[in-house]
Design a protein around this nucleic acid. Sequence first.
DNA 1: CAGCAAAACGGACCGTGGTCCGTTTTGATT
DNA 2: AATCAAAACGGACCACGGTCCGTTTTGCTG
Lengths: 202, 202
Amino acid sequence: MSDTPQGPRLLPLLDALPPERRDAARNRVALLQAAERLVDHCGVEAVTMDAVAAEAGVGKGTVFRRFESREGLMAALLNHSETEWQAAVMSGPPPLGPGADPWERLITFGHSRLETVLHHADLIRAAGRAGSRSYAAYSFSVMHVRYLLHDLGVTGDLPLLAVALLAPLEAPILDQQVRIEGFDVERIHRGWVDLARRIVGR
Amino acid sequence: MSDTPQGPRLLPLLDALPPERRDAARNRVALLQAAERLVDHCGVEAVTMDAVAAEAGVGKGTVFRRFESREGLMAALLNHSETEWQAAVMSGPPPLGPGADPWERLITFGHSRLETVLHHADLIRAAGRAGSRSYAAYSFSVMHVRYLLHDLGVTGDLPLLAVALLAPLEAPILDQQVRIEGFDVERIHRGWVDLARRIVGR
DNA sequence: CAGCAAAACGGACCGTGGTCCGTTTTGATT
DNA sequence: AATCAAAACGGACCACGGTCCGTTTTGCTG
């Protein structure tokens, strides 16, 4: 909710680009708050661009200028929770955060990601390409898993192996398995651990 | 292009539900042909419901009655090529079709799937949920891989392992890797073979 | 062939995402 | 304080997906 226009920047590193005008900043937070209010009041479906504009008391054009598109707005919304999660992974308590051994961290990571994705499934879907992919969550996760695999002494094309581990946790696949085929979440998690075991080579 | 209203039915098995009226059938093929013409003439983007209706010389309502939605129409379009591919896998020449040993079939399958998905990337994307998932391609692929894994003597939760093998070949992931991160297709394939090796345990 | 009910047709109509451009706000400069 | 250019604003406007309902076609039945 306090993102800068350029998205989450964990190390601010004094931006070179011109700052935001005050009205622009004011409207950004008004819009995000309005959108959030709409989301957990009427569901993601109800978050219509006109509705958000009205709820925030601004013109429709403003919404698009700030967030590019509906997907962009959804991505911004997603970013809020994603950033918290990211912080938990990078600097929270073990075994998700640093401190535990890499294998335990990996398993915990998988479980946590699974839950998070399922929890935000509809928001992720609404965010489309602007969401998990091309942005925060995705590249961060790849980086993190890649790092854990390295720590575990895995050899091979690490970026690709990381993606292989992450792909079955993507929203569309999970959606299909849980909502349509009715798989138990617990079973999916066990399956993922098995996959990790095979990839890591234990 | 010659799909029945219920989609591809490889064994016709004398449908119990009432047949299609002649005008309906005529319009279905007219619409599919019109859509196909538009696709490879102006690209998927240009396939607007109004445009298809106009091109086929029917009313817009008819398009929706036949295909439910734009995604449904795209899925129907996809189905054409998917069905051919499916046939090649099930009864074409080895090593993709039956005859080769399971490992070789699996590798060939991966390669073929990779190419196919990339080739139809935009159509798949336009088909959304109605496309690969919940339909022909997806469940067929899972089934096939599951079967090959079984043949290879792999033990464990086979449906889940099959999904793990298929997930990295899904369109959004491939799109990201190839179009955005600029990975070489050859590299992705090598990575997939490595993944298969680890899962199968060679 | 006439009559009829069911099914299909077609296009007017609506909501929503997205664009455009004339008007207003902001903040730097004198 | 007065001025001004850059940036932001807002809402009219457009295109496209999707629905609805009065009209037409189909193919049965007598």
